[in-house]
Amino acid sequence: MSVINLRHLQPGTKIGLADGSTVEVVSNPLDGIWVFARYLSSPRDTSLIGTEEMIFAQDIVEIR
């Protein structure tokens, strides 16, 4: 699995997380460590859907 460069993630990009969730990038502070994203799905906790959270680089496993 190749390492994803967070600085290339534009708002609107859909990304998959290690826990199986899918989120959509809302904004990118370009620090290479975090992105702000909105949950589209979460097998772990469905109450997260629609909420925004800071997503840590190492939790991101793929671009969807």
Binding site: I33, W34, F36, M54
Partner: peptide, 11 residues
């Protein structure tokens, strides 16, 4: 929008 520590990532 944030000040992020490059060491362990606290923001």
């Amino acid at each position: 929008p944030v000040f992020t520590c490059p060491y362990h990532g606290w923001s």
